[in-house]
Design a protein around this nucleic acid. Sequence first.
DNA 1: GAAATTGTTGATTAAATTGGTCAACTTAGG
DNA 2: CCTAAGTTGACCAATTTAATCAACAATTTC
Lengths: 158, 158
Amino acid sequence: MKLSTKGRYGTRTLLDLALHWGEGLVPLKDIAQRQEIPLPYLEHLIAPLIAGGLIRSTRGPQGGVSLLKPPEEIKLSEVIQLLEGSIAPVKCVDNPDAYPRSDLCATRDIWDEVRKAIDGVLESTTLQDLVERQRQKWNLNRWQDHRKNNAPKEGDNL
Amino acid sequence: MKLSTKGRYGTRTLLDLALHWGEGLVPLKDIAQRQEIPLPYLEHLIAPLIAGGLIRSTRGPQGGVSLLKPPEEIKLSEVIQLLEGSIAPVKCVDNPDAYPRSDLCATRDIWDEVRKAIDGVLESTTLQDLVERQRQKWNLNRWQDHRKNNAPKEGDNL
DNA sequence: GAAATTGTTGATTAAATTGGTCAACTTAGG
DNA sequence: CCTAAGTTGACCAATTTAATCAACAATTTC
């Protein structure tokens, strides 16, 4: 039941873009560095996000990627769907018709409830929620040790 | 985010045992047949269930396995924990201390909420719930096509 | 328009995980 | 002592994961 790096890296990538919303194009190189994602891997990661209409990209100098919609209009459920496919814990929940006796299977019902529980969280969380949470954490951190003026500081995935 | 066969087969195995609660030992061979699990694989599956104190086993003729506790005292959360390990979608949720800056990570919070959502379902579901759901399905099925007297019938994972 | 910069695509690959098998062994019953 | 079970450990094939590399396409800048 673990998320793959696609889901983790991809979510971080989109949060990065959301934090830079309104600032134009962000080069993949920068994202790769801040989020500690191998650049060649990130290049492949963004393909489904472009295909899914979440981001746009431009090549050449000053090129990069940016969100196509404001962060508050992008739900985590869309993101994970694009990157990981269905979050259903078993395949028979996704396409019941392919499993002839799924209507006789008691365990299937439970896995569907699990799916609904996960979906409830992802469907009610937007990139904007993540942005606010992130900024709040940075502020808290600044207060906690404001002797060194550091929030956000170099290396903090800003 | 898919469950492996360990979780799926294991849950079915325990539901099978719960359906036979009070009838003594159930041979692995029978479970393997009913649940369509390769016997040699099932043998390995039960090891963590024994170690976890969910079932007991006896070798030799008339041997087999059975639940150690009544079905209503076995929660699905225990089962999945034993078979799949933590259901947290990312490792940093399990042991935050291993991830130095997890307190600065906004995405981590969301994955923890997902974990809690999953846990809510699994923690509130017992094997007895599955048993009742299963028996109910069999009864419904009997009514739906009672021209053929079939519920439960041969091959229906009873 | 040449050169540099950046994203795109497809092939390839190493490592890990999954799902399963096989064989030797142990224990219990008759 | 023989047979019917479960136990354990080694092993293995297939798949998935997490990349990397190279060739290419588009865009900007000089």
